[in-house]
Design a protein around this nucleic acid. Structure first.
Lengths: 357, 357
DNA sequence: TTGTAAGCGTTATCAC
DNA sequence: GTGATAACGCTTACAA
């Protein structure tokens, strides 16, 4: 017993409709130059319908020398921001008649290379690599192959196409928000060492802080909640003068709020926190978290556009998604030491209440 | 200028090595029955290496009538639990020499059907559909096709293979945890109406509550943080006697903690909360959230195993991943009304501190 | 308007 | 040991 029922092919349809396979192909692939009588066209379409015909993508891809498929490589699926990237990429790819397949690389070099094989094997027409931690030799090797590859979320000099969001502006926006509130001693909890986004966010923080802040501390931490937790504990202990924290990631920011609670630094009265990247959870943390929303969906669609351009033969370019970062003010940021002495969490709970009804 | 460099084919390698293409194929695909002289073998291998030959997956898939690829369809990538499923599935697929491609369907019927085409088009050997909200007509239609499909996270009667985790046991475990602490008025915040996991979790809650609880309330909410928030507000208002909540999802539970803070129902002193599904954030919510961890990684690998079985011709079966749910006790659960009168949030913060150092 | 034939890159089967 | 041939399912000049 075959597990899979025998495939219905073009020939089956042709036989049923009493025509030659090539005619079926022309009708079904909607060849505009095909002059086919209404009668045969109907016969063919109904035969295809009746038999449940589906063109074989492998055969078609082989013949046309393009599978009409794009690959999107994500570092991990545990970070909800990639959902947005996928949605944007999916919409753009589908609109152009491409199938989008997703792979998860776990920031693992071997896995990343395994996925590069998808390209060599002709399974996909091109690849979008969304890896903030892709090492530079791999990048160089990819650039050398001149394959249609777009690196998203990482700026690459030279021969490789890349597209990023304006992390620097996002970080500056966050920092200026704190400065506008009157904070003068700031800290930045940055992401992983090897992530290029970290560098750009550090740069945005530094640029904004240099002008108006009296002190600006930078901690290399990571993006897990526990990384934010540890970093915040350290800031609170070693740098009590800091009243405003710009956190490079949403998930780390939850750890910051936790650390603040443990150390009784009421947020926002005695410590303000703003995170880069928005999330549905932001409204429901304690207190609801002020965030910077980045155009991740647009990053996804822009990456697809660029990739299709590369496939069409355009030369590689470096782009930044034009949509600006957006500040969502919630309740984790306020002027420093406000209210001056009253800072019971209950009062803070009061504020959530007012805001939510 | 062609964007893609011309493909290196088997014939190119053969020409370079001065042998016939079929020989190259036998050598490179490691045909055990091939008797090839060490000399030619070396020539072939070095030619392939030098030219940077990669077999064309489309041609091979066409010839072998199998692309050796599995598809994994996820409802959305915004929920970190799917990361675990993907890891499990990826490891299992890779171990068997299959490529795993992921698609995100957004619980959208049209998109789901579009992905089913991957199968019809011969792009994949089989499909794992991880959709809690797949409607029953679609399920029936899939079952009718007898295609190699495994439904994960949804139990299906009849002709379709399916694999689930023990949601019912997870929910009972959560409920019994609250009952053991002495709670007698319980509520369950369930997921979406049409999600099958919701039904199983409700069942586990009901089963456990029936034996020892005095009242057991069930609210159909959803899995977004805001769903948990609204549901919890309602419970606190309309059912103040409830002291323990079993929340069907991690993200909704964050909303529950928020609602409790807004309404000054200190957690865990005056309200206990336990969520199904663990997450790195659980340690850093306020207070850290007691959770039930489900074997999602194993769900992914089991789904792949079953799918490969189906492809090999096994008849469809319904399985439950054997690994039991695990309770992670953190600080959102405690005996009811404990301590009896003292329930300031600051004291609660104290507890975090002790626990974290 | 429809049919013919060749070929995309592989591999299985046979012959030498 | 190695080479020749055919076929997987589809598309597309070109011929009829």
């Amino acid at each position: 017993l075959p597990a899979t029922p025998p495939r219905v092919t073009l020939r089956d349809v042709a036989r049923t409709a009493n025509v030659h396979p090539s005619l079926v192909s022309r009708v079904l692939s909607q060849d505009p130059r095909a002059r086919v009588s209404a009668h045969t066209r109907r016969r063919i379409l109904s035969a295809a319908q009746r038999l449940g015909y589906h063109p074989n993508a492998l055969a078609r891809g082989l013949r046309l020398a393009t599978p009409r498929t794009l690959g999107l490589l994500l570092p991990d699926l545990g970070n909800p921001i990639y959902d947005q990237v996928v949605r944007g990429a999916y919409a753009a790819a589908t609109a152009e008649g491409y199938v989008l397949v997703i792979g998860s690389t776990y920031n693992d070099q071997a896995t990343e290379l395994a996925f590069a094989d998808l390209l060599h094997q002709g399974r996909v027409d091109g690849l979008i690599i969304t890896s903030a931690t892709l090492d530079s030799t791999t990048v160089a090797r990819l650039a050398a192959t001149a394959l249609p590859v777009v690196v998203a979320n990482r700026q690459v000099e030279g021969a490789l196409a890349s597209v990023i969001v304006d992390d620097e502006a996002a970080s500056s926006l966050a920092t200026n928000h704190l400065l506008d509130l009157g904070h003068i001693h700031l800290a930045h909890i940055a992401g992983a060492e090897n992530a290029e986004t970290s560098a750009r966010r550090i740069s945005g923080f530094t640029t904004a802080a240099r002008i108006r802040a009296q002190s600006a501390l930078i901690l290399r931490a990571g993006t897990r909640p526990v990384d934010g937790y540890s970093a915040a504990l350290e800031i609170i202990s070693a740098h009590p003068e800091v009243t405003g924290i710009v956190c490079a990631s949403f998930r780390a920011a939850a750890g910051v709020l936790h650390a603040a609670a443990v150390r009784r630094r009421t947020v926002p009265d005695r410590l303000s926190v703003v995170a880069i990247h928005d999330d549905l959870l932001a409204d429901h943390l304690l207190p609801p978290l002020t965030t910077i929303e980045l155009p991740m969906r647009e990053l996804g669609s822009a990456a697809v556009q660029m990739l299709l351009g590369r496939i069409a033969g355009n030369s590689p370019e470096q782009r930044t998604v034009p949509d600006p970062p957006r500040l969502h003010i919630r309740e984790s940021t306020a002027p420093p030491n406000y209210p001056p002495l009253e800072h019971s969490p209950l009062q803070s709970a009061d504020r959530y209440h007012r805001a939510s009804t």
